[in-house]
Nucleic acid binder design. Structure first.
Lengths: 227, 227
DNA sequence: CGAGGTATTGATATCTTTCAATTGGTGTGG
DNA sequence: CCACACCAATTGAAAGATATCAATACCTCG
């Protein structure tokens, strides 16, 4: 799924290129613009749609009993989001960069509704999602702060980075708090790790939201679990 | 999914009772016994089947580059395991208690093969799995060692426990190392937490593999994320 | 009964969090 | 256009939690 931070494994929940619709599905999917700060759906909403992100970035969150928030994932172009648990969405989903999605009717999931093809697409996206999340598990449980942040940067750069000369640059549309919540760290720790990477000339930070990878090799090394 | 350790949310990937097969699917599913210590499948195997566990316990693991092992999940009766990423299995799967499964042909997933009904069942199991894994995320990232172990015990007891008088008992078919790997802790920490729970008269341990819950309320309390 | 793996317990080290202060960036109104 | 205010990010010092290293106790199986 989305930003899963496992360079070593499968490349997140993206639709297989091959299975692009070759004919229009029964109920035509709907395009939808989504402004920054607005919710595509909220936890508990009736899941009437499933969405494929065509551009922008979404943040999927959940709120714990005690009010603390967990960032479940970041949705990037190509991802499918909004898998319902039953009939309800189980996360909040907010655009953190101007986004566009394609909405598929939820009951495309139900037998005899929606094309077999759409159903296939979604099923396979779900299976990829599961695989990706399993990768993320390993991340969360067995990696140090440095390894987590480095992995996060790598994944983000791989999926949204743009090359500049020999280097690659990439925007961090999310706040430090978002990153921290996603990785299971605190803001301070994330900040400290970024500072360290900066001081070691692995990355450069411009205006806190833009990162330039100066030494991808070192970053990759830092993301590896050191025994 | 399997043992997801989120009492506060959805109850893991089990098939919805309602959607039990009402008629035999095209290709009849196969029953299969699985002895302790034997593998149902291994990472990298071609995923020819998907399995529904009818009894026993499985351990799903993955191996990291450095040789360390991550326990992705424990499969309990009612769970569906073996979701393929593409055509390959992405975890090892070993029985840790004498088990029995129903095997469904993998290509039941592909359009026009297998009954629509089986496909539905699997799709919905996959969706539940995703939801359950998201719960597990929160576990791994925002809970302390005590909270993790307590949550783990609760889930296990809820799914496999047997009442004895006012108390409930339950077997831990997995080793401390398995539990530690699953929760992202070390064996020592798991052991220390169990000892503490024992000293506080919340649980009793008999022969290290059997746990008796003496104070479920206290255990539930210990599993809650304390601000 | 003995051997070998598994679990527990203890002491110490390491990492991350927490608390607190400072700096930096952004937007608004004078 | 600058100044202020507010929120986000960084930095520092100390506390807390878990990991690591090491030793001992406990099962289980030949």
């Amino acid at each position: 799924m989305y930003v899963t931070l496992s360079n070593e494994f499968s490349p997140a929940t993206r639709l297989p290129e091959i299975s692009r619709p070759r004919r229009a599905p029964a109920a035509a999917p709907q395009r939808k613009q989504q402004a920054v700060g607005t919710h595509l759906f909220r936890e508990g909403d009736i899941a009437s749609n499933i969405y494929e992100i065509t551009s922008g970035v979404f943040r999927l969150t959940r709120v714990l009993e005690n009010g603390r928030r967990q960032v479940i994932a970041f949705g990037l172009p190509g991802d499918i989001i909004g898998f319902p648990n039953d009939t309800l969405h189980h996360t909040d989903c907010e655009a953190i960069a101007p986004a566009e999605v394609i909405a598929y009717r939820r009951n495309a999931l139900d037998a005899f509704e929606g094309s077999q093809e759409t159903q296939q697409r979604i099923l396979h996206a779900a299976l990829r999602e599961i695989s990706a999340m399993q990768d993320h598990f390993m991340m969360l449980s067995h990696k140090s702060a440095m390894e987590k942040v480095a992995s996060f940067l790598i994944t983000l750069v791989q999926r949204t980075g743009t090359p500049i000369g020999n280097y690659t640059t990439c925007t961090l549309p999310m706040s430090r708090a978002d990153i921290a919540d996603f990785l299971g760290l605190t803001v301070e720790t994330v900040s400290r790790v970024l500072t360290r990477l900066r001081k070691e000339n692995v990355i450069t930070l411009e205006r806190t939201k833009t990162v330039l990878i100066r030494d991808m090799e070192a970053l990759a090394l830092a993301s590896q679990v050191g025994d």
